[in-house]
Amino acid sequence: MTNDELLDAVGPAFSKLRRTSLLEVENPISTKDLSRTLVLNIVLEHTQGDGKEVTVGAVAEVLGVDPSVASRMVTDNIKAGYLIRAASQEDGRRTVLRLSPEGRELMTRFRRHQRSAFEYITADWSEHDRLEFARLMLKYVDSLAHLNERAQVGDTKGA
């Protein structure tokens, strides 16, 4: 495969990843809970350290969905017992989201499940290839997180 063919194949490969659910390898996660982890992961990631707070609006922004869609997703997590609404410590008029103990337990199970699926899928890879792929995937995701910063730097160069 040429370099161009390899790079052209990346997009379709990502599409296949999105269509493929994680394998039921250890402590299977229900399809419903799998979709709930989208919201729980945002709350978990954005509330770590420094007393950061997450609102429904922030969930909508990160997921790139309408606030009403995010509100329904958050409400579903609350009804399932995974999220708690709380008053903001910064502004008592604002409502923020926190993981409940059940939400934390689900995310712990989900992380174990993800690792088990990765190890199962890559079982016939060398240890070097498995770790290199993991390192590059993390680098890729980190680059995604910094796209806005790069775009803003590019905007200021043209001004």
Rank of each mutant, 00 (worst) to 15 (best):
R19H: 12
E127Y: 06
D50F: 12
A58G: 02
R135E: 04
M73T: 07
A60G: 00
N148H: 13
L99E: 03
H113R: 15
Y140L: 12
D124N: 12
Q48N: 13
S116Y: 07
P67G: 01
N27Q: 14
E5L: 12
V25D: 02
D4P: 01
E45C: 08
T55Q: 06
V10C: 10
V65I: 10
I78K: 14
E105A: 11
D4C: 00
E119Y: 07
Y82N: 03
V59L: 05
V25S: 04
R19K: 15
Q89H: 10
V69Q: 13
D66T: 11
A58V: 04
R18V: 12
T122R: 10
R18F: 05
S126A: 05
L144F: 09
K52G: 04
A58Q: 09
V96S: 02
V25L: 09
P101I: 06
L99W: 02
G154A: 12
G92Q: 15
R72L: 08
P101W: 06
V39K: 01
G49Y: 06
R111V: 11
Q48C: 07
D33H: 05
R19M: 13
G64K: 09
L131S: 06
S116M: 11
L40S: 02
A134T: 14
A9M: 09
D129Y: 01
E26K: 14
G154N: 13
D66S: 10
R150S: 03
V69T: 15
P101K: 13
Q114M: 08
V25T: 13
H128Y: 11
G158D: 08
V65Q: 04
A117T: 10
V39A: 02
V43G: 03
E24N: 14
K79M: 05
T47W: 01
E102D: 14
T122S: 13
D33W: 04
G154E: 12
L44Y: 04
L34N: 00
D76W: 03
A86L: 08
R36G: 00
P28H: 04
P67V: 06
L99N: 04
L6V: 08
S71I: 06
